Simulated scan of single mutants.
Amino acid sequence: MSAYAHQMEREYSARSLSNRENSGTEMGSRYVMESGFYMTSFAATIFIAGLVTVGVLLITLLIALTVMLQSCQSKSSGVVEIQKASDDYNDCKMFALYAELNGLEADEFPSICRAFAIQYIRVGQYARDLNATMQVVENYFSSIMPLKNGLDVVLIDIDDILSSNPHHTNLLMHRFGQFDCSGCIEEAKHLKHLLIFRLYMKLQASGWPLILLSRKSWRQQNATVGHLISAGYSGWTSLIMRSDDEVHVDSCEYFSRRRAGMQKDGFIIAGVISSRMDALTGPYLGKRIFKLPNAVYYNLDRQIGKSVPE
């Protein structure tokens, strides 16, 4: 073969190889382009799905945070309200003690304390306090014995025994109607009378001479005796009521004078039982004093009763 023929063959081979390479390149390019197009669509689908998922998660998280925030605000508000109610209750308790010690009148009570006084009765705390106090009194007198000479006496405030005028209670219930405590005041009074009567019978059965004290005038003696007997009380040693000279004497001074007279006559006061501070303060109180629990409502009841004839 001539040199020219060899040269032509090489050029043809080179062109063929070049064409195959170019053809491969074009095919590869198309493949890459086509492959790139499908990958981009798949990636876009995944990306969009991811965005949707993240969006749903963010919305869920936002809702959860909103609910949690509302719950926290509600709880925080509840805690504040409970704390405020607790503070008000403690303030009213202290004011009630101050009022009892100083004999304050009904119009000197903060209005909010009237609501707490009813709540004290309605939730049963007054009944629990009264039962616990009575147990203390009974335990004390069951641990000692009276002297045989009849001079070892127990003083009982009968104004805790006698029921209030029903007109007083009706006025009181009308005043407290806004607190929805229908009947709870009467139930509290009934429980108090019941427990005092039980204590009275136990002391009498144990041989204790009982001297009854009242703030009322002796002019009401017949009505008072009749009331006591109708309520089941009998067998007391004496009933002490105000003389005409003592009608305008401060009740604390009145009780102190009477106790002083008893001791002068040789009586030994083993204990004084009352729910009112005027009977439990001053000299000549004897060996023990027992303060029965008292709700604030009592002072309101007494104040209302002043304007209602007996």
Score class of each variant (00 low, 15 high):
His227Ala: 11
Leu171Phe: 04
Asp244Tyr: 12
Met94Tyr: 07
Val308Trp: 01
Lys202Gly: 12
Val136Gln: 13
Glu34Gly: 15
Arg288Val: 02
Leu280Gln: 01
Ala96Glu: 12
Ser16Ala: 12
Arg257Gly: 03
Arg10Tyr: 05
Phe179Asn: 10
Asn165Val: 12
Tyr233Asp: 02
Ile196Asp: 02
Gln70His: 11
Asn131Trp: 07
His190Pro: 04
Ser275Leu: 01
Phe116Lys: 13
Arg122Pro: 03
Met33Asp: 09
Thr237Asn: 02
Asp244Thr: 11
Lys93His: 11
Asp301His: 09
Glu108Gly: 14
Met173Gly: 01
Ile59Gly: 01
Arg288Leu: 02
Tyr98Ala: 00
Lys202Ala: 15
Tyr200Glu: 09
Ile121Asp: 06
Arg122Trp: 08
Ala231Asp: 13
Ser142Met: 14
Met173Pro: 00
Glu81Tyr: 07
Phe255Asn: 03
Leu97Pro: 00
Arg302Asn: 12
Lys75Gln: 15
Gln70Tyr: 05
Asp91Ala: 15
Val54Leu: 15
Ser41Pro: 06
Asp157Val: 04
Ile59Thr: 07
Ala106Arg: 07
Leu191Thr: 04
Phe109Glu: 07
Ile156Leu: 00
Arg288Tyr: 10
Asp107Met: 05
Cys184Glu: 13
Ser251Tyr: 13
Gly235His: 04
Arg302Gly: 10
Met173Phe: 03
Met173His: 09
Val225Gln: 08
Ala3Asn: 06
Val56Glu: 01
Leu203His: 02
His168Met: 07
Ala85Leu: 13
Ile289Gln: 11
Gln70Asn: 10
Ser16Gly: 00
Gly226Glu: 13
Ser13Lys: 12
Met1Val: 03
Ser77Gln: 10
Ile63Leu: 14
Arg215Cys: 05
Cys72Gly: 05
Val54Trp: 10
